[in-house]
Design a protein around this nucleic acid. Structure first.
Lengths: 102, 102
DNA sequence: CACCTGAATAACGAGTTAGTTATAGAGATA
DNA sequence: TATCTCTATAACTAACTCGTTATTCAGGTG
């Protein structure tokens, strides 16, 4: 019947906070301070900056990132004690195709 | 920031039941029994048939339809004591465009 | 007008989400 | 090894979702 992965991805999207995060991750350099360790283009934005910008507690931000991660919409790269997040464009494209069939 | 209408539409979509309903409404004639009063093409499917096919209680089905209606994704037509539902294709298309920008 | 039927609402319970603070865990550095 | 910092998890609360049954509302029919 309906793909459970699609439902999970839609639930992940159906949040202003998480839509905002994905929007920021389109352009990490433009939306976050310069970061020393991870390349913002290759590995994405540092989780600390995302947390700060979200304006919620660190655990709340952590859970939002986990929802996006579990839905496959972002990719996490741990590096030098930090975690960097970037968009999973192929998964996002797949979701867009599925929505286009609605 | 993020459009509240987009969030509402995504929340409406993020349900296997409601995705299923929208799928059925693509082809009312193919998915529901013939109905005497409302033209299935013009006005959509009779709410009773949707309720039956969903396999949940009448109030549960009623709430699902209300979520879709409040999100603007379907159009309701009361007629001869029944309510007929059809897809709001222009709203659905708008949603698809918004998702394409994610 | 009275009745009948379909749809909507009320009221409840279980499960989930989203926030909090506090704590544990893991990795890098000194 | 010891420490320090960032991330993840635990525990709790408030609010929302989704199902139920019971009831009310409203239109159409006799």
């Amino acid at each position: 019947m309906t793909d459970p992965a699609l439902e999970r991805a839609l639930k992940a999207l159906a949040s202003a906070r998480r839509l905002q995060i994905l929007e920021w991750l389109k352009d990490p350099v433009g939306h976050f301070p310069p970061q020393e360790h991870g390349d913002p283009i290759e590995h994405g934005a540092c989780n600390m900056y995302i947390t700060d910008k979200l304006g919620v507690s660190q655990p709340a931000a952590s859970r939002h990132m986990k929802v996006l991660l579990d839905a496959g919409l972002v990719i996490a790269t741990p590096r030098a004690g930090y975690v960097y997040y970037r968009r999973n464009e192929s998964a996002i494209d797949r979701l867009k195709e599925d929505v286009a069939d609605v």
